[in-house]
Every structure is written in C-alpha cells, then in structure tokens.
Amino acid sequence: MINALQWIFGLIVAVSVVLSLVFSYRSRRSTDPISRGLNASRMNICIGLMLIFLALIQMVLFSGSTLRVIVGAVFMLLGLFNLFAGLRNHAHFTKHRSSAQ
C-alpha cells in the first residue's frame, strides 16, 4: 500500500513539474497579455499541486521527525498559497478573455 502511494504521489509530482515547465515556456513566449496571464496562472496551479504532493510525501510516507514535519508544513503552506493564487488569477484572466471577445 505504501509503495503504491509513493508511486502515485511521485507520478503526480513528475506530471506537475512537466506541466509547469510547459506553461512557463508558453507564458514567456506569448505576446498576448491575457494568454500570458492564463499560462502563468496555470503554471502557479501546477507548482502549487507539486508542492502539496511533496508535502504529502514528506508527511505521510516517511517517519515523522520534527524537521521533516516542519519542511512538509512549509511546503504545504507554499503549495496552498500558489494553488489559491493560480486559481484566483485564472478566474481573473478568463473573465477578461470572455469580455475581450
């Protein structure tokens, strides 16, 4: 069970890293500010998910030393902040995209 959980969390982290790289590249190459903002917000969402799952790996799959719990809590807070900011910005730029068309 723990081994399967480790593989699933690892796979989610790997996919979110790849997606954050893709959205970062798209954001930097885009000339349209709305498209740039949407891709940057998607990148923030992916980074937030990556940090949350890294925190879950730290907290759930390994023995609970104090340092490991503190690092996991910091990753969890940063991940939740990135996820919230990305979702908020995505809603903002989606609203601007629909009003511009």
Rank of each mutant, 00 (worst) to 15 (best):
S27F: 07
I70M: 03
V17F: 05
A91L: 15
L5Y: 14
V18C: 06
I12P: 00
M76C: 05
L54F: 00
I52Y: 03
V13Y: 00
I12S: 00
L51K: 07
S35N: 13
R26C: 11
H96P: 04
S99Y: 02
K95T: 14
V18I: 11
S98P: 08
S24E: 13
R97M: 05
A73D: 11
H96F: 06
G48M: 02
L78C: 10
S65Y: 00
T94V: 09
L38H: 09
L54A: 01
F75T: 10
L19F: 12
A14T: 04
A73R: 10
V15S: 05
M1Y: 08
S20Q: 02
I34G: 05
S30N: 07
L67P: 01
L51P: 07
L38R: 08
W7H: 15
T31H: 13
F62P: 01
L83I: 05
S98E: 14
F93H: 09
A14R: 02
L21D: 13
I2H: 09
F81G: 10
T94Y: 12
F75I: 10
W7V: 12
G64E: 03
S16G: 04
Q101M: 03
A73Y: 09
G72W: 02
G48H: 01
T66D: 03
S63E: 02
L38G: 08
S35F: 15
L54W: 00
L61S: 00
R26I: 10
S41Y: 13
S63A: 02
I45G: 13
R29S: 06
S65V: 01
R29D: 04
R68E: 02
T31R: 11
R88N: 13
V17T: 10
S30Y: 06
L83M: 07
Q58P: 07
A40D: 14
N44F: 15
I8M: 11
A55K: 02
V18Q: 07
L5V: 10
L77A: 08
L80S: 05
I70G: 01
I70V: 03
V69D: 09
I8Q: 12
N3G: 12
L38P: 07
L77R: 03
I70D: 01
I2N: 05
L77P: 03
F81A: 15
S35A: 14
S98Y: 13
